[in-house]
Design a protein around this nucleic acid. Structure first.
Lengths: 211, 211
DNA sequence: CCTTGTGAATATGTTCACAGCA
DNA sequence: TGCTGTGAACATATTCACAAGG
């Protein structure tokens, strides 16, 4: 397996390839060409072939790619041929929706604990989990060597909660708070902010009075 | 104002600039240099200056940028100097969390209706909104000329609901369903899928057994 | 024929470095 | 001095186009 320095932009597309391949598998398709995959994803076939070629030669000339085999390879590359335990901090509407979301388990992730600092929320039952006091989070993270945290707290507390997570051993954070976290560079952070996406789209929308 | 063809990647950064400037304004800061802003955002100062220069000359040499003035300009550029009405389709845990989220109103957006096809959810009160039958959505969208829709339905129904939205006049969709929508190119779509971000990060995490 | 994988060519994006100005 | 705005230089990413294989 080559896999030298792979550009981050390539890594960002692999989960989309994997997701689409799983959909095709669910529909019973066992082979796919880069052209077909490109059409579904609104990309070019050359880009898909080049991306995959950074990790090995997975296709067959004249035939294309085996869907199950490519899924297996992508899961290995993305390290989701195992299940990652995750914690959620923040048990508001968003944290509760996350705990409720069935998509994690099927894709290599599992929420194993949820925390809040609000006494009114601590003790609340959410499915199989009970909201715990965030003060107990660092010891839990250390004890279980958990690596992934989801930040679902308000902007005002996001930075300090993130620092506490990192001190306890968290190395990857999915941040739903609308702010940029200042953290050591070895900690991976990904951001989800619907406002950013909406404003990106509203740029292209004409004003009401221009229509 | 020049504003010819601006690369999409530049547009994608403007909401982050705007969000950060609003945070600085809330802290009482009235001036900022491209260097300070770059440090907060983990970017280079040249990139920020070049991005902004595509829309005009907003800064002062030796001084930097006026925070309130730059906010005003970015809001104008992104068309969030008005409030956009939005609908949500899907009143599950995610749809309910979205209706509950206070961040929209402060940033140029407002959820004005939420729909579902589940009789058990129709009629449910969520804050000031009541869940309506999704069958009534197209007429509502046409009557009010709503342009923005948030898709919070399961993957299986996302494509057909999206098509119904677009037929009714929706021109921008924020899609939380984990799938790529096939829609006419004039319709803007942005995707939010936590799995994509988590798998992006797990690529960089070492396996448990490698530690 | 149909595919993949890939070097070469092109296109795009970022950073450098500095003139010009407060 | 300290800053912006920007052409030039550089770096990165994408697409083309084709050899090679089934």
């Amino acid at each position: 397996m080559p896999e030298q320095r792979v550009p981050d932009v390539v890594i960002s597309r692999l989960p989309l390839y994997l997701r689409t391949l799983k959909q095709l598998r669910a529909q019973g398709q066992s082979l796919i060409s880069s052209h077909q995959l490109a059409e579904i994803l609104n990309l070019t076939s050359a880009q898909i072939r080049k991306d995959l070629s950074m990790f090995g030669e997975f296709g067959k000339q004249g035939t294309g790619y085996s869907v199950p085999y490519l899924i297996e390879q992508l899961e290995r590359i993305l390290h989701v041929d195992q299940v990652w335990d995750m914690i959620v901090v923040g048990a508001g509407a968003l944290g509760q929706a996350l705990v409720n979301y069935p998509g994690f388990e099927a894709n290599g992730f599992r929420i194993v604990a949820i925390y809040d600092n609000d006494p009114a929320k601590i003790g609340l039952h959410l499915g199989r989990l009970v909201v715990k006091d965030v003060a107990t989070m660092p010891d839990d993270v250390r004890a279980h060597r958990w690596r992934i945290g989801i930040l679902a707290v308000p902007e005002a507390t996001a930075q300090s909660v993130a620092e506490t997570m990192v001190d306890a051993g968290i190395r990857a954070i999915l941040c739903y708070a609308p702010t940029i976290l200042a953290l050591p560079p070895e900690v991976r952070v990904q951001y989800i902010d619907p406002i950013v996406h909406l404003q990106h789209m509203s740029y292209y929308l004409e004003r009401e009075d221009e229509s």
